[in-house]
Write a protein that binds this DNA or RNA. Structure first.
Length: 886
RNA sequence: GGAAGCAUAGCUCAGCUGGUUCAGAGCAUCUGCCUUACAAGCAGAGGGUCCGCGGUUCGAACCCGUGUGCUUCCA
């Protein structure tokens, strides 16, 4: 492997640009081979992240790229800070999504799920999983993720399965799990119940249809209701009005007929009704609306279920039986029109629930399901976040969390699917339930409870339903470390609680809240210490990236074209902390250019290697090196602060600017020897050291290019890899050096600006006369200054020379003499006059402040001191300008 | 209908406890340069009523009230 390295890194053959494809492959394999991603408990402090397991059916999209880049950055940085880092990968069995995929695959092969037994179906499902599942894990490698692959976990692994069953039984025994009929969200495509969290509400343009119901009386009299779901009319078992609605007061105790099927139903009165909505009369369909259901309970109404589990009409729908609900919606309105019962139709905007998984319209449906009571589980989890035992970033999600947790409802945990953990409940012939971890244990319960029945009918029937996928994911941080086998095992005790959970705010209820509850309930403590919520990835126009909009870019192609580093850069650079991510492909170019910049800087520096001479004097550029060290120290501190606050995007920008502006644009230009000139070995060595530290700061963000450059800069011993190089301890930057450095930059920029404004070509030589109190500064930096502004003579002077351009930097007066060009000194003077006017105004405002008694009384002493200093500085500058204008 | 958040340069965003020459950065734009690593580059410049209105304060981008607009979550 180092053979190929050597070839690629032969200086003479260094490519024009950074070659991401080779580098990525090479370094990921190297890191893996070296075992850098692996973690075993030792005496270091652990830093642990469990990756939110993507669906086993998933392929890498923008959300994953963001989420996992963030985690990788945190992990890699923690590793450099000396932690024993452990990042656990895995996938989620995603019951609904996967079962849908498998059903689709079977259909393509001409197999109908209905004709398969559970065992046969599961065999196919596992086959599918082995062949197509988990593609995303290999895609995460491409992104460069430093995951401990030996710990890869699947939520349907045997041990994982057992832990889910154990938790179910435990909660059942504690009385938290029960079975009951309730109104649930039914997904007619997946044919399963969903939890409230799995329903997305979207605004829809609907029609509000006004329909007349004939009242059962001598006269021909009608009551008109308004509905957006005419197809449910067939399930109506009442019409309801407000008790104080005078329009309907005379109908007390009367009945009306449901059109088409002519069912005689009561007119009931309830304060639930909104008198203003529609006609103030509501058709009540207890089987198909949660509010109607509640009304029905209260008023003892019949429940008639007119919709089948696949969304077609049931036998109770009479002649519409077998037709789809949306077909019937139209047809029934036509039929009602023919009967003359439609009063009018109005456009109406309402919220409609869609399945999070299959995106079909949810059907509220009454059904027998398994439920988990959440109230008790929620209590410690509420406190954990309120007391900041678990820290949320950004903090705004704390409120959201608390609000939801305080109003938490029972969790519908059963799903009418086969792919998942089968609910460990068995029924005897009389319908009694036995919940146990194994069939044998259930039988034992049965034997002891009903020996007579057991003797007659030995068989128990197991519940067909499986558990909600989230009922397994909520154990993730515990179970990836083998909680089920041994809840006190050494690994679990070392890595748990994990440090940081990085996830999307959309699953704060699905997953985050439930993991916290599970952590306290089953492990007796919090699952992670902090949660970082990334933003939602949107396109440039602010639209959420989604398959249906087709606005999410092809990540793998992007990685292929630009490289993982660039993709990571482009995602992170537009990810402001706590805000959504407006992904702009322009970031790809910026990232590519950045790689190119570093690559070329490396080529420049590397090119000096053969020009090194030990005895050369380096005092001329010592200023540059000392300044760069100071900047490095300063920015390292800034980055550390930013990372602590999860301001990763800011952190990246800061390092980017340090490398591009400070290092490439200033430093390298300052130390660069003239063409074909030798360079002092000491400068070369120190420059390499600086370069190393720079790319080390960047490494967590862009691991490949940095590791690659690290190895080209110097020949490295086996095991000397950037990924595991430890960050140096924080050093306070040399403040004097920083100040001097920016002064030099200011002088250079001011001279260049003046050159530009006077159309002095870069090649045009100038002379500088400098009037300053601080000659030492200019003596120290004179060579750099000369080179940077293309000056030949730099001399000290005490007076303005006629025909020169004068500028003032801080309080130094600089006279620019261009011997071979004509310059417009008048325009230059006018510019300075403008500065003067501004400064005088500024001084006046500061004076006003200082003369204001209230200010002097109330302001903090250091603020006043500052104002005085501002005043003095401005006065000095005014003086300098006035003198140079003479 | 309930709740939260946001509004600063053309775009995306920083701006801490009200006071630093505080109005900033990156991208985009404009001008000049193929200058001995990089034109995927270099040097420089121009862009803002800090959403409107009112208040608190010696002092407000920042605190309070209010209006407007946008976004998200919940029902």
């Amino acid at each position: 492997m180092f053979g190929t390295l050597y070839l690629r890194y032969n200086v003479m053959e260094l490519s024009k640009n950074f070659q991401h494809k080779e580098a990525e492959q090479q370094w990921y394999a190297h890191w893996e081979k070296k075992g850098y991603f692996k973690s075993t408990p030792d005496d270091r402090e652990p830093y642990t992240i469990v990756m939110p397991p993507p669906n086993v059916t998933g392929i890498l999209h923008m959300g994953h790229a963001l989420n996992n880049s963030v985690q990788d950055i945190l992990i890699r940085r923690a590793k450099m800070m000396g932690y024993n880092t452990c990042w656990v990968p895995g996938t989620d069995h995603a019951s609904i999504a996967t079962e849908a995929k498998v059903v689709g695959m079977l259909r393509d092969r001409g197999i109908d799920k209905k004709n398969l037994s559970r065992e046969e179906f599961l065999k196919y499902a596992w086959e599918w999983k082995e062949e197509y599942g988990g593609i995303i894990l290999s895609q995460l490698r491409k992104l460069g993720c430093a995951l401990d692959w030996d710990r890869t976990t699947f939520t349907l692994d045997d041990d994982y399965y057992a832990s889910v069953i154990r938790v179910f039984v435990d909660l059942y025994n504690k009385g938290n799990i029960f079975r009951g009929v309730k109104m649930i969200n039914w997904d007619p495509k997946a044919k399963t119940a969903l939890s409230d969290e799995e329903v997305n509400h979207k605004q829809m343009n609907s029609k509000l249809t006004y329909v007349k119901y004939r009242i059962d009386s001598e006269k021909e009299e009608y009551i008109t209701i308004a509905t957006v779901r005419p197809e449910t009319i067939l399930g109506d078992t009442a019409v309801c009005v407000h008790p104080e609605d005078e329009r309907y007061a005379h109908l007390k105790g009367m009945y009306c007929f449901v059109p088409i099927i002519n069912r005689r139903v009561p007119i009931i009165f309830d304060e639930y009704i909104d008198k203003e909505f529609g006609t103030g009369a509501l058709k009540v369909t207890p089987a198909h609306d949660i509010n109607d259901y509640n009304l029905g309970q209260k008023h003892n109404l019949q429940v008639i279920d007119t919709i089948n589990e696949d969304g077609t009409m049931s036998s109770d729908a009479g002649k519409y039986e077998g037709l789809d609900r949306f077909v019937v919606r139209k047809k029934i309105v036509e039929d009602l029109k023919e009967l003359g019962l439609v009063v009018k139709e109005e456009d109406y905007v309402n919220q409609v629930g869609f399945s999070e998984r299959t995106d079909v319209v949810i059907e509220p449906r009454l059904s027998m399901q398994w439920w988990c009571k959440m109230g008790e589980l929620a209590k410690p989890a509420i406190d954990a976040v309120a007391d900041n035992d678990i820290d949320f970033h950004p903090g705004k999600f704390k409120n959201l969390y608390r609000h939801w947790m305080e109003n938490i409802k029972d969790w519908c945990v059963s799903r009418q699917l086969w792919w998942g953990q089968r609910i460990p409940a068995w029924y005897d012939t009389e319908g009694t339930i036995y919940v146990a971890e194994t069939a044998a244990q259930a039988h034992a319960q049965y034997q002891s409870k009903k020996p007579a029945l057991a003797a007659q009918h030995a068989e128990l029937r197991q519940e067909e339903d499986v558990l909600d996928t989230w009922f397994s994911s909520w154990l993730w941080p515990m179970e990836v470390f083998g909680w089920n086998k041994n809840p006190e095992n050494a690994e679990l005790n070392y890595y748990y609680p994990t440090n940081t959970l990085v996830t999307a705010p959309e699953i704060i209820f699905f997953w985050v809240a439930r993991m916290i509850m599970a952590g306290y309930e089953f492990k007796g403590g919090l699952p992670f210490k902090e949660v970082y919520f990334t933003g939602i990835v949107r396109d440039k126009q602010g639209r959420k990236m989604s398959k249906s909009l087709g606005n999410s870019p092809d990540l793998l192609k992007m990685i292929d074209d630009f490289g993982a580093d660039v993709v990571r850069f482009s995602v992170m650079i537009c990810s402001p902390a706590g805000n959504d991510v407006l992904f702009d492909e322009a970031g790809l170019e910026q990232g590519r250019n950045f790689c190119n910049k570093m690559w070329n800087a490396m080529k420049l520096v590397k090119g000096w290697e053969t020009r090194c001479e030990d005895d050369l004097d380096d005092t001329q550029v010592r200023f540059a090196m000392d300044w760069m060290d100071a900047r490095l120290a300063q920015v390292s501190g800034e980055v550390a602060e930013l990372m602590k606050d999860f301001k990763l995007s800011e952190g990246l920008k800061t390092v980017y600017s340090l490398i591009w502006n400070d290092f490439c644009s200033w430093y390298l230009e300052w130390v660069k020897p003239a063409q074909d000139q030798p360079i002092a070995t000491s400068i070369y060595e120190r420059t390499i050291n600086i370069f190393e530290q720079l790319i080390q700061l960047l490494h967590p963000f862009m691991p490949f290019v940095t590791e690659d450059i690290y190895h080209i800069l110097r020949e490295r011993a086996d095991g000397d890899d950037l990924i595991q190089k430890q960050l140096p301890a924080y050093q306070a930057p040399d403040a004097e050096m920083l100040k001097a450095g920016s002064m030099l930059q200011e002088v250079i920029s001011a001279v260049r600006d003046t050159r530009n404004k006077n159309q002095l070509k870069p090649k045009e030589v100038i002379n500088l006369g400098i009037d300053t109190q601080d000659k030492a500064f200019y003596e120290r930096t004179m060579d750099i200054l000369r080179k940077q502004v293309n000056a030949t003579d730099i001399t000290f002077t005490n007076e303005a020379k006629a025909g020169t351009l004068s500028i003032v930097v801080q309080t130094d007066k600089i006279y620019i003499d261009a011997p071979n060009a004509t310059v417009d000194t008048v325009a230059q003077k006018a510019d300075m006059e403008k500065d003067l006017i501004y400064l005088k105004g500024f001084v006046a405002s500061v004076e006003k402040k200082l003369l204001n008694e209230k200010f002097v009384q109330n302001a903090k002493p250091e603020v006043i001191e500052n104002e005085r200093k501002k005043h003095a500085d401005a006065m000095d500058k005014i003086k300098a300008i006035e003198e140079s204008l003479k």
